[in-house]
Each structure stands twice: as C-alpha cells, then as structure tokens.
Nucleic acid binder design. Sequence first.
DNA 1: TTGAAAGCGGTACCAT
DNA 2: ATGGTACCGCTTTCAA
Lengths: 333, 333
Amino acid sequence: MVQIPNTPTSADVARLAGVSRATVSYVLNNTSAVRISEPTRRRVHEAARELGYVPHAAARSLRAGHSRMVLMPAPAIPVGPLYSGFLNELQWALGRLDYTVVQYGTVGLLGDEAARAWAELRPVAVLVPGAELGPQGVRVLKRSGARAVVTLGPERVDGAHALLMDHDTVGRCAAAHLYEGGRRRIGVVVPEESGLEAYSRPRLAGVRQALSGTDAAVTELPLAYTEESAARLAAGWRESGLDAVFAYNDEYAMLLMRALQDEGLRVPEDVALIGADDLMLGRLLRPRLSTVHIELPSGRDLAELVDRAVRDPGGEPEVHKVLGASVVRRESS
Amino acid sequence: MVQIPNTPTSADVARLAGVSRATVSYVLNNTSAVRISEPTRRRVHEAARELGYVPHAAARSLRAGHSRMVLMPAPAIPVGPLYSGFLNELQWALGRLDYTVVQYGTVGLLGDEAARAWAELRPVAVLVPGAELGPQGVRVLKRSGARAVVTLGPERVDGAHALLMDHDTVGRCAAAHLYEGGRRRIGVVVPEESGLEAYSRPRLAGVRQALSGTDAAVTELPLAYTEESAARLAAGWRESGLDAVFAYNDEYAMLLMRALQDEGLRVPEDVALIGADDLMLGRLLRPRLSTVHIELPSGRDLAELVDRAVRDPGGEPEVHKVLGASVVRRESS
DNA sequence: TTGAAAGCGGTACCAT
DNA sequence: ATGGTACCGCTTTCAA
C-alpha cells in the first residue's frame, strides 16, 4: 500500500540532514550573513532533493511581511496579438526583476469587491487594465500592503500610477485622415458586444473631437460582430449618405467592407473605410485595409515603473501617456 | 503629515471591537459551530469596516493547510476567441464552486522548474494546457499538496487527469474531406512561428494517418505568418503540383488563399483550401473559406472534473477525449 | 457567549 | 559554524 506522503517541510529536511531548521533556511536561501560549512550545505541540499522539498510561498511571505507577487486581473475578452505580446514582454521583464506575475481570474465581481479579493493575496503591486478600478479600490489595495498600483486605461485614478492609454487618439487619427481625404459624412462603428465600451467610447469621442468645428458630420453605427448585422447596416447605407467610416478596429472593418461590397458599394470610391490595430489580415483584403497602427508601451518600461514604485512607495504617482497612434494608409481610404 | 497606515489585522479589529481575535474570526467567517450575540457581531463588523480590514489569504491557508486556488500557466501565445471563451467559462464555473483561479505568468522556466514554481503556491489543483508538464512535474505538484492535476493536451501524463485534446482529429477531418473531394496531392501548412508545434504537429500527423494506405501524397509546407512567406510559397505552387491544402488554421488559410489568388491560381478549382477554427473572418473571403470547426469541452464540465478530483484525490485519473472536429464546407474546397 | 493559546511553515535575531 | 526561539496572521480546540 502506497502512502500518500505528507508535504515535506523544512523541518523534515532539517531532521534528515541532522541540522536545525535555521541551518536549512540559511543554506537553501544562500544567506550571505552567515557562513555554513561545505559538508553541511551538501547534506542539506541532498536531503532537500531527496524529499522533493518545495518551500511554502505563503509561509515565507507571511513571515517576510511582503511578497514579490504582481497581480493583474485576467482579461475577460479575447485579446489580440498586440496586447498579448505586450503582456508577454511585461511578464518576462518582471520575471527578470524577480517578480512573480499572477493573473487573477476575476469572475463577476465588480470594482471594489474585486479589489478586496485581490488584496487578500497581498500582492506587492497591482496592474489594472481598463477602468475596473476606482479610487476606493486603490485605497483598499494600498491599505493592504500593495506598494504600487498601476492602471492602464483611459484615465488616471486617484492614488495610482497611470499609463494613460488614450484611445481618443485612435479616433482622432482616423477622423483626421478621413477628413483630409475629403470625406464629410463620417460613420463610426460602435460594437454591440459588451466589454468593448472601454475602447469604443473613447474612440468615438476622439472622432467627435477631431471633427468638431468642421463641416463634417459624425454618425454612430452600432454593429454586432455577425454577418447579418453587417448586412443590415450595409443595406441602409445609400440612404444614410455616409461617405466614410471608421470601423472601430480591423475585424469590424473587414466585416463591414465585405457587406458594403456585397451591397454594390465601392471602397474607397463610394465609402472610405479605415480600421484600427493593424492586423496582418487587413492587408489581405482587396482593397487593402487602411488602419490605425497602435503602439503600446514597452513591457520593459512598465516593469521598470513597477519596480521603481515598489522601491519608493511614497513617491508621487507617475502618469504617462503611452498610446501611439498613426495612420497606415493602404487602399481602402 | 499623513502616516502610511499599517495593514490592519484581525487583532486590530478585535481591539477596536473590544473582543478577542477568536471572536473576530467567528464573526467574519460566520462560523456555525459557535453562536455569537448580535450586538457583538455588529461591533465586529463595524470595526472591520472602519479599519478596511481584508483577511490575509496566505495566513489563512497556512493555518488551514490548504487553499482553494486553482492554478494554470498563463498562455504564452495569443489565444483565439474559442479558447478564450473556454477559459472564461471555466473560470466562471470554478468561481461558482468557490475556487480562485490564478494564471501563473511562467516566464521561461521549462517543465519541471515551472512545476516547482507553481508548487510553491500550494494550489489545490493545477490545470496545464499543452505538453508543458511531465510525470516528474506531476509528482512534484502532488507531493506539495495539489489534490488534482489536469492536463489539457495531446496526450495523457502519468498520474494526472487528462482532457485529451486530440488535434490529430482536426487533421484527419480535413484530410478526409479533401480526399473525398477527389484531391490527391495534399499540402499541409506547418507554421514556422514557435509555440505552435503542440498543435501543428498532431494536425499534420492526423492528415498523414487519414491518408496512409491511400493513393494520396502529403507534403509539409512550412509557412511564416507574413505576406512574403506566403508569396514565396505560392510562387512555387504550380511546379509542386499540389491540388489541395490544409492550412493549419483559418488565419494561415486566409494568408495563403490571398497569395494563391495573387499568383493566378483559382480556389477551389486549382487548389482546394481548408482552414480550422471556424473564425468569423473566414466567411468574409471569396470564396468563403471552408474550415474545421472545433468543439472544446465545456468549462463547466472541466470545473466539475476538478471539483470531483479535489474531493477524491485518491481516485483513478480520469481520461476524456474532448475535442470535437467537424468540417464546415463553404466554397474554398 | 467569549477568551487563551497552540500551531501552520518559514526567517532572522541572539546565543553558544 | 550552528541551534534555539520568537514571530508573521489566522483558525480552532478547550476552558471558563
């Protein structure tokens, strides 16, 4: 009968090696303030290996009074190659600085409840994309020991560092481009899928900003990510009189372009079309899809911001504008 | 001068409420084995609220000897809407069962090192997609208290439960479809991007299986996710004599279709083309892209498997084949 | 109904 | 060079 072995602790290692728990700790952590003889070190390592000892992170950080865990909420929506690459780079960079990145699978908790749940893990830093966190939440996190709270979103939150990802810029870029191309009746696709408002609203607002005071008119175009919805939108196109559209992103743009073409409308002659995110696939369309290329901050830079903030928790919150947007003109506009 | 307040502990709450720590614990956890008077309860809740008390998860689970944390490695590659939806459902379902899902940002650690890092967090269950975990890793995790280890991948791992996501099936499906359409010289795209081998290899193998013993020939087609690479592949197409291709997935298929068409080849007359994953965007191509629709297991089912395994850690590892694949014939094949 | 106290697994100070 | 021990925050038994 095979016993399910109990999880070995440092006391087990100590016993097996014939030393004290303190010595085990010294050896396994390479504590420099203390010299342990080579034979003893070997015995300890040997014992740890033999038992398959793995230290208990919770016990360690309980004693230490802090952890090296950087927490972020796990994204609830499918995330494109751009953001995914950013995340990877960030994790890699934080890993190099000896932080452990953990994405918390927030289910349905909203704002402050979520912050409480995160705070229970006592992360040393919290990174929050979007607008999921209010000043209240920041306070909860700081109160419970988070030395840095960084938001990545449209606007700054009191008490937190901010990487301002100003999606207005994306809309402004697109609008300016269309306007310069001589378009005056400009549609803006607003996805009906939920969870996208955080991006679609500022993008729309950016278009409005760029065009306010001009002779151009802006029309909001709700669109679900289905062929039917796109066909419906395209069917009413002629009477709408729109001569250009900023389609939220490349995927919605592709969907809409197809529907417009099926309706007999010519792109870009009848309708100029531009997306955003600069997906590979946009280049495959005919006409090739114009797009707003978006530049995210480098993961390394954010990692360094986090590290700086952790080392100096008293410092003034840093606020950086970090979203670069530039038009990639292809053939659809 | 504003003091940075120390994180309040249950002792602080007890002091403020004028009761013992034990009482605080009873009240805040609604311990049913013990009756606390209503006035006391109120005082405790009041004190906790006032201090902004948040319990310390590490201390709690250290004392309890176990946690409710389900750990999975964070995906290193951008993940499509299909898998992303699956993950969300899973997290939601596990949340309902009162588990906390955490994605560990594994940087570059390979197999067993990663397992060790995960084990430090003492998760009650570990879910590992792909083939990142060997039997050694499973042992480390179980040894350190994980009551369930579940792999989601091509093959089962000793000691762990397995959700067999048999991507061979995808290849078989595609191959059978192309063969039935009368095609005999069949190409299979193998992405050059790393991290995709776990899927591309079995998909290719599936094609080989389905076609072995027939008069069809299979050709492996390395392809990077760039227009240049696709153009190069298309340029050599005529002399290759291939009359069909399974393009790994819809994205590579879209890329390749464009390149083939630009080369003057007709789809499907000259080349039948099929992708996989059934992306929305494939329907927008002309001809519409045929694809292999993939059915992932339900997140709820996996959550229940996890829960079952946690409750009965001694049970035999369950092994389920969970990948449904079916051809969606459109116009490209 | 409430409190005192032990102990979970580590770390680090102070002795020896 | 090593060991004894207090303590991190919380839960839970046992006593009062």
